[in-house]
Computed example of a mutant assay.
Amino acid sequence: MSGFNILERFSLSGRRALVTGAGRGLGRSIAEGLASAGAEVTLCARTESEVEEGARCIRDHGFKAEALVADVSDIAGFRATVDAMHAHDIFVNNAGTNRPKPLSDVTIEDFDAVIGLNLRAAVFAAQAVTARMANLGIQGSVINMSSQMGHVGAANRTIYCASKWALEGFTKALAVELGPVGIRVNTVAPTFIETPMTTPFLEDPAARNAIVSKIKLGRLGTPEDVVGAVLFLASDASALVTGSALLVDGGWTAD
């Protein structure tokens, strides 16, 4: 009767997790969730004060966390950092950005910033972490943070959509490549989530109402909604799940 111990499969006790973009917002919430499930979490971001404070808060709650100041867009530097530290069983490839505007107003600098972080840095961060996993025989879980915009289109988000659609394709290909060594690769694809970063945009009643009208469950997402999806994909509860996208979009993409 294996169903009676299914909750044990959600435990992350004894595992190490690395979360990029973990200084604030969704990344920090994910780090807190992984720690509460038993993982030893490394919070990675460029701003030392943010990751140090986040790690300290997790430790103050009785869980295990450390801070890592690193820039994932520095490909060689991040690879060297990963190679020099302890290995991880779980990698949440979360760092990302957006510059919403009509394509007619998009500059080369905008393109390079969005594609550079959302795709280029994400690809090579995954390369660095999974190479170390494979070399050490770790059958780990990689969770690439995508978006519902990796499955649909939207005005003023052409470059963002391009980056996330590409990340979805990359995820499927990497899952095929790493399946034989037991490394699972999936995406979490959220809808609009209420975080400090989205607050200014969502404070506009017209914008907020337009967004909610597309979400079949009739509400915006919360960080906790996304954390639950990440915990599932990080744990043995999803042991047969790879190359998949877990849409946390309230039904936005259902029609």
Score class of each variant (00 low, 15 high):
1 M>W: 09
1 M>K: 11
5 N>R: 15
6 I>C: 08
8 E>P: 02
10 F>P: 13
10 F>R: 15
10 F>C: 13
10 F>I: 08
11 S>Y: 12
13 S>P: 05
17 A>G: 02
22 A>S: 03
24 R>D: 02
26 L>K: 02
27 G>C: 14
27 G>I: 12
29 S>G: 14
29 S>N: 04
30 I>L: 05
32 E>Q: 07
33 G>I: 08
33 G>N: 12
34 L>H: 11
35 A>Y: 01
38 G>N: 14
40 E>N: 13
44 C>Y: 15
45 A>H: 11
47 T>G: 06
48 E>P: 01
50 E>G: 11
57 C>I: 07
59 R>P: 05
61 H>L: 12
63 F>I: 10
64 K>R: 14
67 A>H: 08
69 V>I: 14
71 D>K: 00
76 A>F: 13
84 A>R: 11
95 A>T: 05
98 N>Y: 01
99 R>D: 07
100 P>R: 03
106 V>F: 03
106 V>D: 01
107 T>E: 02
108 I>V: 15
108 I>S: 15
115 I>R: 03
116 G>Y: 01
116 G>W: 01
117 L>H: 04
117 L>G: 07
123 V>M: 14
123 V>E: 00
124 F>T: 05
127 Q>I: 04
129 V>P: 07
130 T>H: 03
130 T>F: 06
134 A>D: 09
137 G>I: 07
141 S>G: 04
142 V>F: 12
146 S>Y: 11
147 S>L: 11
147 S>E: 00
150 G>D: 08
150 G>H: 00
151 H>N: 14
151 H>G: 10
152 V>P: 02
152 V>S: 10
152 V>D: 11
153 G>H: 13
156 N>L: 12
157 R>W: 13
159 I>D: 07
164 K>Y: 02
164 K>N: 07
165 W>N: 04
165 W>P: 10
167 L>P: 02
168 E>D: 06
169 G>V: 15
177 E>T: 15
178 L>I: 10
178 L>R: 07
183 I>E: 09
183 I>P: 13
184 R>V: 15
186 N>V: 05
190 P>G: 02
192 F>A: 15
197 M>V: 15
200 P>N: 06
208 R>A: 06
209 N>V: 09
210 A>W: 09
211 I>A: 06
211 I>D: 02
214 K>T: 09
215 I>T: 11
219 R>Y: 15
230 V>S: 01
230 V>N: 06
235 S>D: 05
236 D>S: 08
240 L>G: 07
242 T>R: 09
244 S>W: 01
246 L>E: 05
252 W>A: 00
253 T>V: 04
255 D>F: 09
255 D>R: 15
